[in-house]
Amino acid sequence: MSVTAEAPKRKASDYISDVKPVWCPGCGDYHVLLSLSRALAQMELEPENIAVVSGIGCSSRIPAYTNCYGFHGVHGRALPLAAGLKVARPELTVLVMSGDGDGFSIGGNHFLHACRRNVDLTYVVMDNRVYGLTKGQPSPTTEPDWDSALSPGGTGLRPFHPLVIALASGANFVARCFSGDVNGTARVLIEAIRHPGFSFVEILSPCVTFRPDEKQWKTLVHPAPVDPTDDPARAARRIMTDDGFNTGILYRGNRSPYRAPAASEPQDPGVLERKFVI
């Protein structure tokens, strides 16, 4: 490391608002907020040029906790809202923050199409394998035998594999992080934001209230033993055969991001009337 000639323009705290989170003490999402603020500070982005878009759920509360522009929308629809914003204002950095219920269940269809569309967004899903805000129901990533009031004895359903689905649907960047690794997650977020197109980052973020067993995740996670690949088939094989706790950048693709058709020179709306004239 060398001493930088100039002092950094930004501190992590510049990206944190004065609204205090209502998450449970112990929640992994605090770490994610910290990671995000460090990533943004490290990139020296102006807070007003960042938009954080979310849906509904514990994790989706995050926009108000940042000092960026935020949109806390409806359940499951953060991705299309963010896509509309990014297409309309391509110069902004647009981050979408979601959870496993919001992103993979009610918002599942948008996830597929956001990967396909490849708009230059960074999609962060804080995966705690449970609906926290509604008091502990199984989500698409919950283990089949996890007992709950809504699905006594477990759902019996095979968990959804977000990383493989992202890859198959065309996401241009796929990574898995663990919330407890604050700086590691921040470094991946920087890569994800910088990477053109749709970047998907799953952050394993324990729910200490409804999934106290997830406190053990810190002993289970381990960095991916190999470098990221740009071959989706190799990435898929790795992701499907790993233990679910392999962290790091797993795929870095090179598809061109979504570009809306654009006129070389915008014309006056009057020209549109010509073809109606009798």
Binding site: A7, Q42, A186
Partner: peptide
């Protein structure tokens, strides 16, 4: 002055931080 991620810690973060979980 360094950026927050310019520091290299053996344990990921500064040693005096508490694990929020």
């Amino acid at each position: 002055q360094f950026g927050p991620l310019d520091y290299r810690w053996e344990e990921g973060e500064g040693p005096e931080t508490l694990d929020l979980t």
